[in-house]
Design a protein around this nucleic acid. Structure first.
Lengths: 217, 217
DNA sequence: TGCGTAACAAACATACTGTTGGATAGAATC
DNA sequence: GATTCTATCCAACAGTATGTTTGTTACGCA
């Protein structure tokens, strides 16, 4: 039987949870780059050798944690937002993501900004790009994005995906002064304009949650 | 008399140049995060204690180096690109930047990507945002960006500036398969669409080259 | 209750950091 | 060309983080 979070030893789950929480706390306080394994284990009140039983280093801890998080998001039921009368449709998949981010807003604000980690940001961007490409294919079929009057599709997707993380960071750095529904609509507008086709971003969540292995350093 | 790069001691200029070159080489080879001060000084064949006479740490070295680079770019005469007949105007300021980036394409490809540095990326993005905001003001006057039908101006600028670095990274990761002129036009189109107003990006270069102090950790 | 194993504790070699004091080489100045 | 100035070199230092090992203890699970 495959090991899952459910049938893991209670001690294992507890240790991993403590380490994850310590990682988040310390990231918010000092920035990811400044954190040491020692810091994490001291904060988590876990022996340092125990850390190495579970993770290779802090990057591995971050990767595995984000894998668990994304799996949770992808598996969670989608709760569509209520669009006001006359308003554009709220992209439901993006909305789920924004709600999660809002829950850990301090953490994401740091990790996506200057005190964060380039690998994390790039992974995040690639996720968005994959989602956009998938939706484009889903809604308009292959070769839908081809248009000689526009920049290459790949460029537009890189542009839009990097832009989305920038928009989210802006939102976080302004204390989420707008609702996730509002931001989801705005990002939907901007991405559609960048890609050159209207993308109903909420149609589907990330179709391919990436595994940690691909990101281990 | 103020010290400039010109009247510095020859030994100082040589040392700093060697350290900068070593930084670039090693960044390309191992990624910025994996580099140690020891690595840099060994590659540069400079004593380690000498490093600390000039820089606080590798971040400081990077910051000061980028300051010098941006000063050079800002001071360099602008060579406008030749727009083909019927083509959009080539943004000259952006073009200068792209030509410089192309010169150190390996370095920027690493630094702006997953093996790079979040602080570097963020600084880069802020530069772009400042330039866009400046141009908007210059071309259309203050309160030009206000438009109730669009997302807030700040959001659009964060979106567009993050997107621009994404577009440049895409270009670098594809071996600069298109000319800087071509890419400048494309980015100009995309940014104009994102901001909601046509931006003749080349009108001016960065009006306010940032000093290192603001970025020292 | 007993088994299995995760967590703990202590120690270790290795590596990088940031700083110091004195010796030396060589650039700048006259 | 001689002299002065100082950047560089060299060696050493304490402090800290890493990653691994060994044996012991505690506790979840069946």
């Amino acid at each position: 039987m495959e090991k899952t979070a459910q049938n893991e030893d209670l001690r294992v789950r507890r240790t991993r949870k403590l380490l994850q929480e310590a990682l988040i706390e310390l990231t918010v306080e000092k920035g990811f780059a400044a954190i040491t394994v020692r810091d994490i284990t001291e904060r988590a009140m876990v022996n340092r050798s125990t850390f190495y039983r579970h993770y290779l280093d802090k990057y591995d801890l971050l990767d595995q944690y984000m894998d668990e998080v994304y799996t949770l998001i992808a598996d969670a039921p989608i709760q569509p937002g209520r669009a006001a009368r006359g308003e554009p449709e709220v992209p439901a998949g993006l909305l789920s993501l924004l709600r999660h981010i809002q829950q850990y807003s301090d953490f994401y604000r740091v990790m996506l900004g200057g005190e964060g980690d380039a690998r994390f940001i790039e992974r995040y961007r690639q996720n968005a790009e994959r989602r956009y490409r998938y939706l484009l294919n889903l809604l308009y079929g292959p070769s839908a994005g081809d248009n000689p009057d526009l920049p290459p599709l790949d460029l537009r997707l890189s542009y839009a995906s990097a832009a989305s993380t920038g928009a989210i960071l802006w939102w976080l750095e302004h204390g989420q002064a707008w609702s996730p529904e509002r931001l989801a609509i705005w990002i939907g507008q901007l991405v559609s304009a960048s890609v050159g086709l209207p993308l109903r971003i909420g149609a589907e969540v990330d179709p391919q949650p990436s595994r940690a292995a691909a990101f281990n350093r």
